[in-house]
Design a protein around this nucleic acid. Structure first.
Lengths: 328, 328
DNA sequence: GTGAAAGCGCTAACAC
DNA sequence: GTGTTAGCGCTTTCAC
């Protein structure tokens, strides 16, 4: 790899001038041209490690997520990437497996690499951001808030859970269960809250507890919880799934037992990635993960650009896609 | 962020000694202990940009893939990550959207960042690796070979396509179509080749062309091609899908038309991620993307470690999961 | 085993 | 507008 000195020598200018050309500072057109052609001839690319060391900041954004195999997060990653790339930033995807230790390691790396900022879908409410924030790096929380005073982009989970439930009520179901993620995760609790309030208001006070399952936000969690519910003394006639993967698990388990919507009602908060089921059988409360990604990236870029205002929280809307085939 | 100098001062040693402690060189136990406690007190983490600049190499591996939203590639990413992480390397995921320009940019970045190596699922057979290789960085090709003499890890695509087709033949289907990816992608061609040879051998010479569609490796591609096939003069009675997303698209389109396997036979090369369909209705030629990832990472680490032997090609086995419910 | 010092490639004062 | 120079934080000879 050629250095700035070799380019300078070939172009007959100083290294500083070469640097200026590559950083948009004012240079006479003649010298700029000479530099550019020398750079091309030597296949020069600025060394990013050196630039990062000198500037104390890399043009890289860390996107830290709990599950890279969940399409919700990869969709989000696409959104982040699009905005970041347009602004000249690269995105580094870090997968924590929802483990605090891995998350911690990645946050340390982000700091040690002088990355410009972090977009974090926290592993749990216990996530620690002290180090990164002490290092002066902006953080934007996505999907889940953190215990820190940072920008966040979230869905209206309570309302999404309520909406999912209301759709099932409207379709005539009477015993509506809810399978959501780990209780340690804000979104899981909020979606369950939405379900609970709707059930209690629309059906009966009694019709809630006993029908709630905190599980994992994964397919197997959905299957297990569904099996558990169906094998109970008073099985539900409908299920609200707290995220996309749980939805898949629910439907898989039902299908294994010969049950298909609308025989039993199903509403999913999120989406049904790669479903092969007819879309009008299941109610979807669609969460726009991509938009969450673009919004978060924009907020982060603002902060990187020096915006020091108070922390903002953006709540994104969801879209209701009701099942059109119902039991009724 | 504390520096090595501050740690040195606090511990009463030279910066060089601090560096040695953090790099496993021999240091007296007394000083090592002093350094460690000073480092902890100052919350010292070595600055990676500085280390990278000095060592001319970062402990980072680039994983360059064409579609981050395809579970096949995220599964592969998991495999890469597991091996890399165990060896102390971070993984940077780069999404090219199967565009050569983006791929080129990412490869340049990998070089400019002094990354230790690249694992590449090439955007097309026209991918250029000259710069990276000239920079002395090892490259391992995954899923698809490149035109360069580098290590590669691939599936036996021809055999996978043949196996998928043979399963449909065995189930009694007579007009078996094939929907595969872009003709510019090796895997797409090879899977089609496997299909063609089996159809020609088992059925009739005539029963092949006209039933082959080169599409995109995406869900919409599967839908469009299926629609196209079904609306033709002599529609197929079975379809081989060239990858997971095409399989989803095929099943979606069929389902929209009220067709479900085994009314029409379906075999998929790859897997059916997050399917809600009963697994015994569709034949799956399962490709182990995770294993592909771990294998590639291992090969790359060997190269990074200095292995300069001839380029190797590893061909991974697939697993046949036949549909057990057939039209017969 | 340990310290002094040079230098990785770049940017940003500072002088002109 | 342009060149000179110092220095970002680290690793690594080279002496001792």
């Amino acid at each position: 790899m050629a250095t700035i000195y070799e380019v300078a020598k070939l172009a007959g200018v100083s290294p500083a001038t070469v640097s200026r050309v590559f950083n948009g500072a004012s240079v006479s057109e003649a010298k700029a041209k000479a530099v550019r052609s020398a750079a091309t001839a030597l296949r020069f690319t600025p060394n990013r490690a050196a630039r990062t060391l000198r500037k104390q900041s890399a043009e890289v954004i860390a996107l830290v997520i709990p599950d890279i195999e969940n399409p919700y997060f990869t969709e989000m990653a696409r959104g982040v990437e699009d905005v970041a790339q347009a602004a000249g930033y690269s995105v580094v995807l870090c997968n924590t497996d929802a483990e605090l230790a891995k998350e911690r390691t990645y946050l340390e790396i982000a700091l040690a690499e002088n990355m410009a900022g972090v977009i974090l879908a926290a592993a749990s409410s216990a996530s620690r951001l002290d180090e990164v924030l002490a290092g002066g790096r902006p953080v934007v929380a996505v999907d889940r808030r953190t215990g820190y005073d940072v920008d966040s982009v979230v869905m209206d989970n309570r309302s999404a859970g309520a909406e999912a439930t209301a759709q099932l009520v409207a379709a005539g179901y009477q015993r509506i269960a809810c399978i959501t993620g780990p209780e340690s995760i804000e979104t899981a609790r909020e979606r369950a809250d939405g379900w609970r309030s709707t059930v209690q208001r629309e059906l009966s006070e009694a019709e809630s507890e006993g029908l709630l399952r905190f599980s994992t936000f994964r397919v197997d969690g959905g299957r297990d919880a569904t099996a558990d519910l169906l094998e109970g003394p008073e099985p539900p006639d409908a299920i609200v799934a707290g995220n996309n993967l749980l939805g898949v698990g629910v439907l898989q388990e039902l299908s294994g037992r010969g049950l298909t919507p609308p025989q039993i009602g199903v509403a999913v908060v999120g989406s049904l990635p790669f479903t092969t089921l007819s879309p009008n059988l299941v109610t979807i409360i669609r969460l726009n993960a991509r938009q969450m990604g673009t919004t978060a990236a924009q907020l982060l870029l603002d902060r990187i650009g020096g915006d020091a205002g108070a922390a903002r929280t953006v709540v994104l809307p969801h879209e209701v896609l009701p099942a059109t085939v119902t039991a009724g």
